[in-house]
Amino acid sequence: MNAFRLAGDMTHLLSIILLLLKIRATKSCAGISLKTQELYVIVFMSRYLDLFRTYYSLYNSLMKIIFLGTSMCIVWYMRSHKVVRQTYNNDEDTFRHFFLVLPCFVLALLVHRNFTFIEILWTFSLYLESVAILPQLVLLQKSSNIDNLTGTYVFLLGAYRGLYLFNWVYRFFTENHRVRWIPWLSGLIQTAIYTDFFYYYIRSWKNREKLKLPA
């Protein structure tokens, strides 16, 4: 464990907690893409399969349970909670997210490190996570006013994988100089997809104005 990775995990945890608090406090999920939340549940389920097989550390197992639990809880709130589900804007959240799941799965079948069940699903989860934010970004472009909590949520979610990139550089130089293109490139693409959002988010924060993404 290194500072970059811990900072990355804490940023990721904070983003999810922030979203959960926003939904619970305001009893609203306006501006949040259910599609992205569902994609993240698929990412965590396909990545944390080894949760009960391989024990790395208490921290690792605990965080996996927290990520799985909170992401499913968010989807439950948006789909089934009697008040929150009314605030979900179905006809704005239009991204066909299953057009992301299938290609990522096929790509994982073609490009992977070992052809084993766990490895294929782990690789699939990396590919899927790199594009999972797209429905949310598309929804933000349509939103006239993005509330601060939602903007901060997306910012932290984007920042966590950026910190992981530093973590991989650090591990490369301090551990064993092994190249791992699949997680590295997936993480790079994932972070690159946020650059547009990062630019407008930081500019709105500097100019003290409302966050607005160009349509």
């Binding site: 990721h12 080894d50 690792n60 990520f67 490190r113 992981y164 973590n167 991989w168 064993n176 997680p183």
Partner: peptide, 10 residues
């Protein structure tokens, strides 16, 4: 030794 992978990460 177990082959190095980044699976010990989240």
């Amino acid at each position: 030794a177990a082959e190095f992978s980044l699976k010990d990460e989240l």
